[in-house]
């Protein structure tokens, strides 16, 4: 019952299938490896999502609201507000976000910015809620 005997009993097609499947597996691994942690940033204005961006692409976005234009910057996997026409700049004070589930909001200018994703709820933070 040596394994070698059984291997010899496999047909040519069997072996081809194994090789092809392994190759497929490797191919997929490469593709998935190249896909960087694709977290997506969503901008909600009112009830609608008005803008979508990939966290891994550095960019600067102008988000118009009732008060004026809020400028959002995504850089090095972090998103933050650079400037905003609101009076207290609370949104700027919220700092930078990078993890799924985090939120920045400019309430006067009606903007809610959040990073999507469900797979790292609090893995990199050691608390559930922040009191501020």
């Amino acid at each position: 019952m040596a394994l070698k005997d059984y291997w010899q009993r496999t047909t040519a097609l069997d072996r081809v299938i194994i090789v092809v499947m392994l190759a497929l597996c490797g191919f997929l691994a490469v593709i998935v490896g190249m896909k960087k942690p694709g977290k997506t940033l969503y901008v909600n204005q009112g009830e609608r999502v008005t803008y979508k961006a990939e966290m891994m692409t550095d960019q600067r976005v102008d988000l118009p609201g009732p008060l004026g234009v809020t400028v959002l910057e995504i850089k090095d996997g972090q998103a933050r507000i650079l400037s905003s026409p609101c009076p207290f700049k609370v949104c700027i004070g919220m700092g930078a976000i990078r993890h799924a589930g985090e939120i920045i909001a400019c309430v006067p200018n009606r903007l809610l910015i959040e990073i999507s994703g469900e797979n790292d709820p609090n893995q990199e933070r050691n608390y559930d809620l922040l009191s501020r």
């Binding site: 059984y6 009993r9 496999t10 047909t11 040519a12 097609l13 069997d14 072996r15 081809v16 299938i17 194994i18 499947m21």
Partner: peptide
């Protein structure tokens, strides 16, 4: 042309 190993894979 295909054997149980191939089918099973």
């Amino acid at each position: 042309r295909i054997g149980p190993v191939g089918v099973s894979v």
